[in-house]
Amino acid sequence: MNTAQAGTLESMDCLVTVSEAASGTGVKIQITGSSAARFKSAMEKKVSEVIASMGVKDIEISIQDNGALDIVLGARVEAAVKRLMGGER
């Protein structure tokens, strides 16, 4: 199974790991880390938006958060997915 990563565990950043998923699996999001308990639903919403805007339907996403703002979360997810798709290196 292909996987890709983007981001770091530095303060205000997050480490995003994405894996290919079989067709029909949908988007599976797992979030752990400092803000996960309080902001999980907002973070999931942001991640879903980015994934949808990239036209990806089936994917598994794991996020280790260390206080990333929305902007950072979106950028790291986009970067990880682009790496997975091999479109940008």
Partner: peptide, 15 residues
């Protein structure tokens, strides 16, 4: 280089 470019792009958009 790829991740930095995307991060900077998001900041220029919403930062």
């Amino acid at each position: 280089k790829d991740t930095a470019r995307i991060l900077v792009q998001h900041f220029l958009k919403q930062g």
